[in-house]
Amino acid sequence: MMTLTSSKDTGRRVRGAPAAAGVKPPRGRAKPSGGTRGQGLVAHVFLLPWMIGMVAVTAGPLIASAVLAFTDYDLLSPPQFIGLDNFVRMAGDERFWAAVRVTLVYVLVSVPLQLGFALFLAVVLDKGLRGLSLYRSAFYLPSLLGGSVAIAILWRQIFGENGLVNHVLGWFGLELGSWLQDPSLALSTLVVLNVWTFGSPMVIFLAGLRQIPEELYEASMIDGAGRVRRFWSITIPLLTPIIFLNLVLQMISAFQAFTQAHVVSGGSGGPLDSTLFYTLYIYQRGFVNFDMGYASAMAWVLLLVIAAATAANFIVSRRWVYYGDE
């Protein structure tokens, strides 16, 4: 393994053709003598807790919700099978489509912003400055507050009619009302909230940066590569599995964004459904209107959409994500 990290030639490989990074060993050598099937047994020993969890904890509710999607279930009386009615109803439900719009906009805008922000700060806070751990902690603080009840009040304080943001805008002669009560602005405050809590992807990026062998940088420095060049030719390619990971995780979590919208809008998704996130609507149908069949159907539609988006991500990832094990 030392050959990988110490040879000058590695740096060149990474820089030149990242897709082929790492020595691609003859596959046969990587496998134990028993071949593919031989590791099946061992793998299942490792997977024992996961399998128990899957069967005992996860599968039941998962299947239950799948079944409920085809029923009329008010939580009180036994579910009634109604075939595809829930799905048909969705097609004609204005609020459903409002929720779809809000969620898509949110995913498309807030995920890239948050990830860009997180990556940028992770690189800045990676090394080379005193007190970095202090800065990291400070930047992580907002994320610690999470979806706490305090957020609702803080956000009103910042984006309310006499809040901080309007105060600052006032210096430039802009007079706005409460952002949270304006249907064209309310969603943007939740995007800001998401970007503000960029701590989690930042920490993942930091961890990913630490995985990059120092020797690669040394090698390329010997080659005379500058800082910017090193960033694009080593950091970014080697970080791609982690960028991909963050992209998938943040995308999934943005599709499912709930707590912050719930807290900030007081559960209504208002004004005029402008912050009615998909899961918030699921929650309203299930927990407020006792319409759990419909809520389950909506949840499975969401699952299919997220799965498709994730699969697309995985397929596209083959073009830009470089694994050390390939």
Binding site: F258, Y278, S296, A299
Partner: peptide
């Protein structure tokens, strides 16, 4: 399968889980 389990909003899972 693992990834699928994080794609379903927990509000539709929580009641069956609670019953369990």
């Amino acid at each position: 399968l693992t990834l699928m389990t994080i794609m379903l909003p927990f509000h539709v899972l929580v009641i069956p889980q609670y019953i369990l």
